[in-house]
């Protein structure tokens, strides 16, 4: 049995063939290196993210998260719930907090859950995977498996919104969280100092419904990374990763820019620094290839 065990909420976009399947693959790789075991919550469901509110009222949305927590309580009673997706983590933690604070909502939610044969108890901690890395493993522990330091690479640490607000990583500030920069240094790379768009919004789900407004936000995020001298952008969030990576050509067309900057997950960076293959680091999941990381991964 692994040293660190968690009840894992993977989330819809992590599934095979989905938009952040590359995050899951590289996360599994670093778990092997760090002796972490992620145990999937059996039959987990969607958290409704932050955009489900048009059709789903407060109670149905709370019930979705409560179902996941109840299933975790049954299957992994002694393990904290952990999510890698910012939206999954936020929705689950928000529901857990609100149900624990409001007895009326709790009673209503449990009445709804009964229709599916479940009960929410609410004695679990809901944690982000980054919290596991920082609090349970620690920067020293994260440094140990590094065999190929990412020397000579400058990286803009783009924390984004939902990993950072309203909860954030314990001990970090909302306006200038430092953990991603520290992680970049731990892996031997150089963080862009004072990356001004570090906690700015990429538009989230509104990239679909308000593409022009959202692409204007992403343009600023990328511009500021280039201005800081970045070779690539790293992020913990599946929506940030996607929005910053895949619309660069459309932004170039509209604004006459020449963006072509890779946007990678911290788990991909870590996998490469830990000496794992391009495949294990999910580098083939990049739409804009991270050539500098591919070169390091290819070195024996």
């Amino acid at each position: 049995m692994a040293k660190h065990n968690y009840s894992f909420y993977p989330g819809c976009s992590s599934q095979k063939g989905a938009s952040s399947s590359n995050q899951l693959r590289s996360t599994q790789t670093i778990c092997e290196e760090l002796d972490i075991q992620l145990n999937d919550i059996p039959d987990w469901n969607c958290c409704s993210a932050s955009i489900g509110y048009a059709g789903g009222g407060e109670l149905p949305r709370l019930a979705l998260s409560a179902r996941n927590i109840a299933l975790s309580e049954q299957a992994h009673p002694d393990q904290d719930i952990v999510a890698t997706c910012a939206a999954c983590w936020l929705a689950t933690r928000e529901a857990n907090d609100r149900l624990n604070e409001n007895s009326g909502l709790l009673a209503n939610t449990n009445e709804a859950l009964k229709a599916g044969g479940l009960t929410f108890k609410g004695n679990k901690k809901i944690r982000h995977f980054v919290e596991i890395l920082i609090e349970d493993i620690g920067y020293e522990g994260l440094k140990k498996p590094v065999t190929k330091p990412l020397e000579g690479i400058k990286i803009a640490g783009y924390v984004g919104c939902q990993t950072n607000r309203p909860f954030g990583i314990d001990g970090e500030s909302f306006e200038n969280p430092l953990y991603l920069d520290k992680l970049i240094e731990t892996l031997g790379a150089e963080p862009v100092e004072n990356y001004e768009k570090k906690v700015s919004c990429c538009g989230g789900a509104l990239m679909f419904s308000e593409p022009e407004k959202s692409q204007a936000l992403v343009k600023d995020i990328i511009e500021s990374a280039y201005d800081g001298g970045a070779d690539m952008i790293v992020t913990p969030c599946p929506v940030c990763q996607l929005n910053v990576e895949v619309y660069q050509e459309q932004i170039n067309k509209k604004y006459g820019t020449k963006f072509n900057i890779p946007s990678v997950y911290y788990s991909t960076l870590m996998s490469v620094a830990y000496g794992r293959s391009a495949q294990d680091a999910a580098l083939n999941g990049q739409v804009i290839r991270a050539i500098k990381l591919e070169e390091i991964a290819a070195k024996s």
Partner: peptide, 20 residues
């Protein structure tokens, strides 16, 4: 955004998971 959000909810509540 209303249209997208509505479709998101309908999509997830059908099978329990989002089909992107």
């Amino acid at each position: 955004t209303n249209k997208f959000a509505q479709r998101f909810w309908n999509n997830l509540s059908k099978t329990g998971r989002v089909n992107e």
